[in-house]
Computed example of a mutant assay.
Amino acid sequence: MMIRREGSDDVDAIHAVTAAAFRGVAHSAPPVEPGGDPGEATLVSWLRDDAGWIPEFSLVAIEDDQVVGHVLATRAHVAARPVLGLGPLSVLPRRQGSGVGTALMHAVLGAADALGEPLVGLLGDPSYYRRFGFVPAQPAGITAPDPAWGDNFQVRTLSRYDGLTGRFQYAAPFDRL
């Protein structure tokens, strides 16, 4: 498996992987259009067209010249300071549980740290993301965009973290879901 930046030829494959990964999953965003793909697949397209898009943080996992996974981090803010919002993380259902998601997470977190980002926030299952150093955001002084998310909203501090606290705000397209 190889992890690399998304290329223009990967867009359709990323959409397909994201749709497949979130189709029928209880926590997935509802389709934007009735009967359409899960909201996460549409969200990736919206994010590409947003000012918060950072190409260096859109990574694909490739096996046998096929996209089998994708992770994305976009510009977010805590108290008006730039941070990253991670998601969605998508892996083809037949490849889930095989290390693809883990490899993508390590790659995107390594890239974020290397490029001087202070913090990454995400909404997800704490039992999965804890292994990457994520902790519930509220005790760390970061307020979730929606307080009902509780411990499912998590943060991971990086080398440039300096005690930043406040309300977390994702890139604008997240508000459309």
Score class of each variant (00 low, 15 high):
L115P: 08
H106G: 09
L84Y: 01
T165D: 14
P55F: 07
G110P: 02
G101A: 10
H106D: 14
Y128M: 13
T165C: 14
Q138W: 09
A73V: 07
F132A: 08
G52N: 15
P31R: 09
R94L: 03
L115T: 07
H15R: 06
P173F: 04
H106V: 09
G35D: 09
G97F: 05
R94D: 09
L122I: 10
F174R: 04
H77Y: 15
G101L: 07
D162P: 11
P136S: 12
G97A: 06
A51F: 15
V108E: 02
I14L: 03
A137R: 03
P126M: 08
L122M: 13
P147Y: 04
R156M: 09
G52S: 15
V25G: 00
V17M: 02
W149I: 01
A73E: 13
L59I: 05
L109K: 11
G97Y: 04
P145K: 08
P34Q: 07
Y128K: 12
A137G: 01
G121T: 12
V100H: 01
G36K: 06
V83W: 00
R95G: 03
R160C: 15
M105G: 10
A16K: 08
Q96S: 11
G163F: 14
L47H: 06
T157C: 13
E117T: 08
A13I: 00
D113A: 10
G35I: 12
S45N: 15
A21L: 05
T18W: 00
F22W: 04
R75G: 00
W149L: 15
R23K: 02
L59D: 05
G121H: 07
T18E: 00
T102N: 06
G166I: 12
R94G: 00
V83A: 04
E56F: 09
T42D: 15
M105Y: 08
G35P: 09
M2N: 12
V25I: 10
L89M: 11
R176K: 15
Y129P: 07
L47A: 06
G87H: 01
T74Q: 02
V100G: 03
I62E: 12
D64Y: 12
G36E: 10
L158H: 10
G87C: 01
E6G: 00
L119Q: 08
V135I: 14
P34A: 11
P145M: 11
Y128S: 09
